[in-house]
Nucleic acid binder design. Structure first.
Lengths: 335, 335
DNA sequence: CTGAAAGCGCTTACAG
DNA sequence: CTGAAAGCGCTTACAG
């Protein structure tokens, strides 16, 4: 890239100090005659002056950049979240850099370090399992931080999450209302609280309808490309018909589940009732259209950015915000 | 964020100059006794020294950051591209910042300016229609640059694209081979060359089979949320049955088209044969599974990053690279 | 070969 | 109220 004009170039042409040019360009107190100020603005225009954010950042100790860690930016839930976060952040003049942890502690740590070296002003993190210590360390170092989608109950952080318990509680009650009894839930083998809450919501709903003996929790590993689900599926609703309905607890699990359904020629909702998670055109266009739990992604993104902006505006404040958003059951024809 | 340890802190503790600490930390010529070097490394470790990239960037004039502009990061094609670009860039020690143009010239310009102010070392851009001048200006300022997915034939830039002509040529020939004759193509109302090439490939294939009189090009605007397609669809393959097969030329158009198919209860492939674009689980899980043109997204990302790295490594070179990747027709059951 | 000084482009505290 | 100087944290050209 060719060299850009600097404050020094403008100052030299006009015959004033760079400090004065800086103050004029930043519309601080007008401590110069309008004439000089105009001359400065005019030369700045001529030279197409654009401030060097790097220099400004070094000086001010602020980069106007946020770091966002998600599990995988190519996952539609997270790319949609990222898009909304970027939009909202840009309203405040912030740029976002994104990293994908792939649910791995080491990758998450690498990303955190990159963010720290890049001197981001704050972070929004959908934490992977086992990153408690990383997050705790950031907290101790007073990094402005908001957890999103997931959180650690033992850490006193800001977070914005779905009411996960309620999401599956309502989904389960809906299935029961629709006449399903042997309802299973497909979840990741995680201790992460949001996943445990989704499982709890389901269990409590089953208990509330005296179906405790019909609880089937199927846990799988979030390994890309693996399809360990197949055998389980076939067992559960293929031959033995152990269950008559199923709740998927993430969008990826929904997709994996639907592959299973197609491959095993399971009829929806006759053989199996289904409730998916997160939404997307896939659910609408599937035959039959899938009923699903919708997360308020835009609200989630906006709230997270808002909290972070509050932190950045008031660094001394020690309060933490916990935002819990309501899910919405979008009713279609899969159960 | 608490203040981090700087070279100065280490230098003070060890009793040497910051310059010396810098050279030791950067493993330059070992111009000190091993003893001193070890002492420096030890103190750096103790203080958990992490270099301040901002300061380094200002000094070196390089930020180790790339800018990526896509149409919309929440579009699966672009989020997948972004993910692959981030992965590959990180192999070279680069971070990526992403902006979504929403196909708007103004938004694209805003993003470009942000990138310039952030002093990115290079850019990878899927250019929106009408951004020719922006790109030309970057070129004139010697910004290392690779266009991706789309390009401007009149500009001498690096680019990595699909062989778009071939993609639809082969798709069309396949449809004809399968017995379809009245084939339509759904495209965006763009002058962008990649889209025109997709249309040309289709037209030429039709001509090659003496079906020139059966050419139907349907052009729509890329407005989010609008469904102006409906009327056209109903006209074309709903009542009048003007066409018996259709090629969608992007993933979003495929989705829009499939909504149309569902809403109008069009039977695939009996009422209408279909070929989609880009792929994804939606195509696999649709009933019937959709045959589609697959783009080699990973190759596309890797090639783009590689070209950019070559530019950054050899700033004097004036050669431009044009990479044209082969599409692959994934055959399923929609035609 | 070594180390101290200059400087990247800014902003702001401070002397006049 | 104004303007010149200091300094953010680094790296490298240059004097010794």
């Amino acid at each position: 890239m060719l060299k850009k004009a600097s404050l020094k170039d403008i100052a030299a042409r006009v015959g004033v100090s760079t400090a004065l040019v800086s103050s004029v360009m930043n519309r601080k107190s007008v401590r110069v005659t309008e004439e000089v100020a105009n001359r400065i603005r005019q030369v700045a225009e001529e030279l197409n002056y654009q401030p060097n954010e790097i220099a400004r950042s070094l000086r001010k100790g602020l980069t106007k950049t946020l770091g966002l860690i998600v599990a995988d930016i190519s996952n539609p839930f997270f790319s949609s979240l990222a898009r909304n976060i970027e939009n909202e952040a840009s309203n405040y003049g912030y740029t976002v850099i994104i990293g994908s942890s792939d649910e791995e502690v080491e990758k998450s740590e690498t990303i955190v370090n990159t963010f720290l070296n890049k001197q981001v002003d704050g972070m929004i993190i959908a934490p992977a399992q086992g990153t408690n210590e990383q997050i705790f360390s950031l907290l101790q170092n007073k990094m402005p931080l908001v957890l999103i989608d997931r959180y650690f109950p033992e850490l006193n952080t800001n977070y914005v999450i779905l009411d996960n318990y309620r999401a599956t509680y309502e989904a389960t009650r809906y299935l029961i209302k629709r006449g399903f009894k042997r309802i299973g839930i497909l979840a990741y083998k995680w201790q992460l609280r949001h996943m445990q809450d989704r499982i709890s919501g389901y269990k409590e709903a089953m208990k509330s309808c005296e179906l405790s003996d019909k609880i089937y929790v199927i846990e799988t590993n979030p390994k890309k490309g693996e399809r360990e689900l197949d055998k389980t599926c076939v067992d559960l609703f293929g031959k033995n018909k152990t269950i008559d309905a199923m709740i998927f607890t993430t969008n990826l699990l929904s997709i994996e589940g639907l592959y299973c359904v197609i491959e095993n020629k399971i009829r929806i909702p006759d053989d199996l009732g289904i409730i998916g998670f997160d939404g997307g055109s896939l659910f609408d266009l599937f035959s039959p259209p899938i009923t699903y739990v919708k997360q308020p992604i835009e609200d989630m993104a906006n709230e997270a950015v808002k909290i972070l902006m509050d932190c950045l505006g008031n660094r001394e404040s020690n309060k933490t915000s916990h935002i819990i958003l309501k899910p919405k059951l979008i009713i279609q024809s899969s159960c």
